[in-house]
C-alpha cells in the first residue's frame, strides 16, 4: 500500500453532495487514528453541498505531510456514485483499488437535456478492475437505507489492514445510538459483498 511519494496511504472518497462522504471519511480517519497512525483528512465544503460533485481525501501512515493528493497517487478510491468514479479515476495509483457504488445519479445538466450520461459506465469500471457494490440495495436489505456510506466503509475495510473491532467501535460512537445495530449490519454486509466475489 505504499504511496508513490512517501509511506502514507491515500484514500479518496468521491460522490455527490448529501451522500454521506464526510461522515464516512470521518469514520475512516478515526479508525486510522485509533490504530496509532498519523492522519490528515481534507474535505471541500461550500458550493459542493448543493448536490455538486464532492471529494474528501483521507491519508494515514507513520508520517503524513500534505493533506492533498495527485493524479496516480490514491491507493484506494471509494466512489459513492458511479459517474463520479469516472471523474476521479485519474487519481488512482497504478496498483490502487477502486470500489464503486453501482448507483448512477443523474446531474441537472443531464436532466434538462443539455448533455448526456456516459454509456456503459459500469462495464468500463469493471474492466479497470473496479469492485462494484450495490450499496443502496444492501443498505435497504439491512433495514437502514441511509447507511449506504457505511456499506461502502465495510467494503473498504477488506482493502485495509485495520481490525474489524476498531471499525465497529468507531462506527458505534459516531452514528445515532438507535441506528448502531443497523449500521454495524450494513458494515458487515458491505464487507461480505466484496469478499464473496
Amino acid at each position: 500500500m505504499a504511496d508513490k511519494i512517501n509511506g502514507a496511504t491515500t484514500v479518496l472518497l468521491c460522490g455527490v453532495g448529501g451522500q454521506g462522504t464526510i461522515l464516512a471519511a470521518d469514520i475512516l480517519a478515526k479508525v486510522a487514528a485509533r490504530a496509532g497512525l498519523q492522519i490528515r483528512l481534507s474535505e471541500i465544503h461550500g458550493m459542493s453541498q448543493r448536490g455538486g460533485s464532492v471529494i474528501t481525501i483521507v491519508r494515514f501512515g507513520q508520517t503524513v505531510l500534505s493533506p492533498v493528493t495527485d493524479f496516480g497517487c490514491a491507493d484506494r478510491i471509494v466512489a459513492f456514485e458511479a459517474t463520479e468514479a469516472l471523474r476521479y479515476l485519474p487519481y488512482l495509483a497504478k496498483d490502487g483499488k477502486l470500489l464503486v457504488n453501482s448507483e448512477e445519479i443523474v446531474p441537472l445538466p443531464v436532466l434538462i437535456g443539455a448533455v448526456e450520461m456516459p454509456e456503459n459506465t459500469l462495464e468500463f469500471l469493471e474492466q479497470r478492475g473496479a469492485k462494484l457494490i450495490d450499496s443502496t440495495k444492501i443498505a435497504e436489505e439491512v433495514g437502514n437505507p441511509k447507511a449506504t456510506n457505511i456499506v461502502l466503509m465495510g467494503a473498504l475495510s477488506t482493502e485495509l489492514d485495520f481490525p474489524v473491532e476498531i471499525w465497529e467501535e468507531v462506527i458505534s460512537k459516531r452514528v445515532p445510538p438507535k441506528t448502531i445495530e443497523s449500521n454495524l449490519a450494513a458494515f458487515a454486509a458491505g464487507a461480505k459483498a466484496v469478499s464473496q466475489e
Binding site: K4, S53, P90, L92, A93, M117, P118, F124
Partner: peptide, 20 residues
C-alpha cells in the same frame, strides 16, 4: 517525474451544485 494515470476518455456530464 510524477506517476502515470488512467482516465476515462468519454465526455463526462458536469455536476455543478444546484438549488435544492
Amino acid at each position: 517525474e510524477t506517476p502515470e494515470f488512467d482516465r476515462f476518455d468519454g465526455a463526462l456530464p458536469p455536476r455543478p451544485p444546484a438549488l435544492c
